[in-house]
Write a protein that binds this DNA or RNA. Structure first.
Lengths: 344, 344
DNA sequence: CGTGATGTGGGTAACGTTTTCTAATGTTGC
DNA sequence: GCAACATTAGAAAACGTTACCCACATCACG
């Protein structure tokens, strides 16, 4: 019945014939290229809408641009990333660029490489890599092939632009807040890292270092537990902290998702928050604001980060020789009900 | 210094020359096509790895497949969707297909259409649409152009396969649980829907209908409040319920995110959960398990849904004339601390 | 009235694959 | 020993678009 063969796609040739111009002319109109009169533009535009023509991205990929931007996200479960994505898409809304996401899924370096390769193979015009774990040389290699912006990773490169939160300041904000409330023993849960490059460039490592520096500035002794930036990491980290001979009066989790795991472990252990122990997170993800949770957290302005990344990428696509930029954005502390003075 | 022009891409011609065969031969080896001797396969494979060749997806899109599957997700913030995605990618891991995500971002029908069009324009071999809101005719139109699986939406089509949770059963599970605890007056908060097609196909409408049926089966009178599947919807819905002359002893929220809003309103009203009133949700999103929330909820087995969708899509890509399948998966109830017997 | 400069439009060759189609080999069946 | 058939390999024509030319007007300037 309805098993009619799919209709042949409308091509630029159909449009050209319908508008009685050359395919070159249509192509020029499509790309706002030089050499078209207003009259011709109107004719072509009319033909395009009348026929419902849409350019074939595959064919475009062979000669020019695909008007596609690839975004690599490491972990869809971390609610911070949608904030970045919102900023990105808001900024790219009316630019004619389409955003496609590559899920790397915490499967490590290999999965990440596969996704970036897939994006390059598909002729994407630009790449935004969020918190990539690949070695720096690999990132520079990618950036030489296609305009690239790296988000959420520190370190200067001449090949790609970067946008990151000032994690040192962020960690200091939390420590200052807790110390100001009277806490003397503040533990920190970090994402375990041994690779030397990443130790210098990844946000988790910078946050841990910022925490240590801030603690020492207050004359306090750092107490770091290494797990991972996941809910399980928070759960296990908190359990480990609870076995300490002297229990900390506050826990600074390196990410909100970690804080969630911490809260679970504390509830299980029968500890009230903040009466028995204070908890702070990082990222100010949307569930931090939820009534029953009400987590004190560091806000990274994810939306702003995403918008900045989009802007830098468009600039780089326009001019690949422009010197690279390193944008660092200042975080702010959002105090909620999960932090209070230490128990008497 | 490092400003060397990006090296020309390795093409199938390079591989052919290096292996001293024709480009046709290389293409055949790449696609496991008929007409290649083992000796030739070996030669070509060697040349491919030696040169580090990767096929150009754009060029492939012009003649054959792109080995890309597009997934449309409506809302990255709903923690239910990553579960589906995991199931998908697990199933597609070693098939040679690459998954790319299109963010539709709750921007409604128009944004959704833009994303699906973009995926079709990029020559994707198959589409997985998660909880699409487009009218049914539009979905069928898409499915005629490219193999498509629709996830999380009921309704039978001859053009696309569907995978969905049995929402009728899910709602019944909740009502049975609450009635079993002794509740007689159970209110339900639904996502308001007037569009007739969606009333018949969208999960929210089916859940509400399932609730009504289950209530009647227990000899109880349904009590439905229509707002939306958002936190605000839950908050407002609960406020509305609290003004009832006879206050319900339990609230069944159509989604976990709604239950969060309900909990906020109840906390404000000074009602204890579950001592004063019971609350149940739907989706078993990861924050339902959080200690401070501990929400009784219906689990949809997202991973299984995703894997099933992937399987159906691969089957359909292999044979587009195969009759369509409608898979319905059974949900389970996860009882937590937000539900208990009614107050005495 | 020549001479450039400028604006406007089109012809054509790529781009990197896959898909016929054809030719040249064996290989079988009688 | 010869037709019929399988197997293997390659040549060449698409696929839809853009980049690079070139051709033709028109116009300003001396």
């Amino acid at each position: 019945m309805d098993s009619s063969a799919p209709p042949r796609r409308i091509t630029i040739v159909d449009v050209a014939r319908h508008a009685r111009v050359s395919t070159t002319a249509v192509s020029k109109v499509l790309r706002n290229a030089y050499g078209t009169s207003p009259a011709m533009r109107a004719k072509v535009q009319a033909a395009i809408t009348e026929l419902g023509y849409r350019p074939h991205a595959g064919a475009r990929a062979m000669r020019g641009q695909t008007y596609t931007i690839g975004v690599m996200l490491p972990d869809l479960r971390n609610p911070f990333f949608p904030d970045i994505l919102d900023g990105l898409t808001d900024h790219l809304r009316d630019t004619g660029y389409q955003v496609l996401l590559g899920p790397s899924h915490c499967n490590g370096e290999e999965a990440e490489a596969k996704v970036t390769e897939a994006m390059i193979d598909r002729g994407m015009d630009g790449l935004i890599l969020v918190a990539p774990i690949a070695p720096r040389t690999h990132l520079e290699q990618i950036a030489r092939l296609v305009p690239t912006v790296v988000v959420g990773r520190h370190g200067h490169s001449t090949a790609y632009d970067t946008v990151a939160d000032d994690d040192t300041t962020g960690a200091k904000l939390v420590v200052d807040h807790l110390a100001g409330l009277g806490h003397r023993h503040i533990a920190h849960i970090e994402h375990h890292e041994t690779n030397p490059t990443r130790l210098a460039e990844m946000p988790n490592a910078i946050r841990a270092e910022g925490y240590r520096a801030a603690m020492r500035a207050h004359g306090l002794e750092p107490d770091v537990v290494s797990t991972s930036y996941t809910r399980e990491g928070g759960y296990l980290g908190a359990q480990q902290i609870l076995t300490r001979p002297r229990r900390p009066s506050a826990i600074f989790a390196g990410a909100d998702i970690v804080a969630i795991g911490v809260l679970e472990a504390l509830t299980e252990a029968g500890l009230a928050v903040p009466a028995g122990i204070s908890v702070a997170g990082y990222d100010n993800t949307n569930f931090a604001a939820l009534g029953p949770i009400s987590l004190t957290s560091v806000d990274q302005a994810g939306h702003h980060i995403g918008a900045t990344a989009a802007r830098l990428l468009l600039d780089r696509i326009a001019d690949r020789t422009r010197p690279t930029a390193q944008v660092k954005l200042s975080p702010t502390l959002v105090v909620r009900r999960s932090t209070a003075g230490p128990p008497a």
